[in-house]
Nucleic acid binder design. Sequence first.
RNA 1: GGACCGGUAGCUCAGCUGGAUAGAGCACAAACCUUCUAAGCUUGGGGUCAUUGGUUCGAAUCCAAUCCGGUUCACCA
Length: 596
Amino acid sequence: MSVVLKIKEVTAVAINQLYGIDLLPVDILVNATKPEFEGDYTVVLFAFIKQLKKSPDALGQELGDHITTENQHLFTSFNVIKGFLNLTVADNYWLHFIGDQYKNISFGCAPANGQKVMVEYSSPNTNKPLHLGHLRNNFLGRSIAEILKANGNEVIKTCIVNDRGIHICKSMIAWEMFANGATPASTHTKGDHFVGDYYVKFNDEYKKEIDVLKTQGKTQEEAEKEAPVMKATQQMLLDWEAGKPSVMELWSRMNSWVYEGFDATYKRIGSDFDKTYYESNTYLLGKDLVETGLAKGVFFQKTDGSVWIDLTADGLDEKLVRRKDGTSVYITQDIGLAEQKQKEFNAGQSIYVVGDEQNYHFKVLKLICQKLGLPSADGMYHLSYGMVELPTGKMKSREGTVVDADDLVDEMINIAKQKTEELGKVKDFTSQELEELYNTIGLGALKFFLLRVDPKKKMVFNPEESIDFHGFTGPFIQYTHARIKSILRKSGTIQKQETGNEQLGTALLPLEKELAIHLEMFPVILNDAATEHDPSKVAIYIFNLAKIFNSFYTEHSIGNAETEEKKILRLQLSQLTAQVIKTGMNVLGINVPERM
RNA sequence: GGACCGGUAGCUCAGCUGGAUAGAGCACAAACCUUCUAAGCUUGGGGUCAUUGGUUCGAAUCCAAUCCGGUUCACCA
């Protein structure tokens, strides 16, 4: 149990014993004490003074007295300033904690809780390569999955590939028109980029044809409808749905190129899935649920035959679930897929990592599933994240301002290489070890950059400045880890651990204590990150930990400490810090090097 | 127009279940490598927390209004 929780419990007990009032520990506010005051943790008393009819000062004194005398093993002193009760935690508490945990490689992680969670992320279109926005999605999805695992959940990672539809046909038509049989192999192009190029070519051609039609006196709208490439594309979609062999052949051929490209990218960035769904297999799902909904009266039919759900009572609009021609729409297949996933995996919670432009969609989706009484409905959670924007605004493929994922990863790895060579600290590494190190640092910088901000918020990426390697960054934390490992290598294994740290006797110095306090918070942080679906909580925490360690490192000698006891203590602190950094970075999907 | 999200230092972001004098990083200025990795440490300047009003012992945080920016409300996916 964390100290903070203990303080809350002890305070609740004290208030009960002193004043006979029952309070829940959760209702008691405990903060870290501000540096300018004496103490480690602070109980904020204002909330109780009315109920207890005491002055803040009197209440603080009585509570402080009671709490410290009843829990002498936990607190050494207290002081009261205004309505704040500042408690100083006994050094022995921290010594015990360090001694108990420094060898625990799964410190912070919870045992299996028997719960199953699905995380759907990545979900690409097969008509263009991945860009910076997809990277945020992939890193978030992977990270939230790891965070949930660390908290004891069984996690199933899934991906729904958008491999059909009008946009895919656009690439196919353009390829037929312009490629002369070219392939990724014949042009030495990565498959997803190859296909993406034809998607661009389609749009160029489409624009041209529209312009021509407009000079012939058509309106924009007419021209858009009548352009021959667009007509051909629509015909191709119909042919695809009818299963026309030549179209199916081209479709699967082009998709296979894209998958080859995606696989390469996924492998580099560390995305993987336990189960991949393809829309070409799932787009007809949910049709039967429309009938169910009609029978239940959840849906209604308009005179033209189209089927709708009325969500106006929930503050939303009417939503179409089946077209008048009997074909289903996007949301219908999502309902069907939700049901399918439930049948297949029966997870208690299902997390969808999808951009915030689909907030409305997911609100509607969950509501419909609830109204249909699907067992998966209540466990649906949309992990909504903001767009990654450029200083000039949104990325636009039409204006060529999209930051390509492969290019960016290459660039980051290159910068890592350049900086590593400049510093020249690992000249004895083999070329293979160097490659691995550049990957670790480059991807570490990129992942940390995208995960350190609250997922819900949109963020800005400035390609001009590239991504920093100093300060609040992945490499800074990786560097801290490498530094600690260097010390541990040089200092050998820790002796005397059997004696128990409380007997080490020496009082903790301020930075030693600050480190211990921070380390002790890790399990709570990991748990918060899971319940709030927010990896940035871990990123910020790890950064602060690394900062404290670096101050500690500069101020105190570890390997050559003043006494043997101090040396042991500091080595234990260092080892636990390295362990927490490693675990914390790993749940962000980031590796930490032994040397850099 | 309705709904939802955001506006905190020059820039990028924390803090938002109300608590002590609003914090980091970058950038800028200064000091620190005969001793455990300087991708580091220390110090300094830098703020009308969009605006106005309200709630109260106390508001960046909650409420209302206004301004600015974004997303969304397709028989698109």
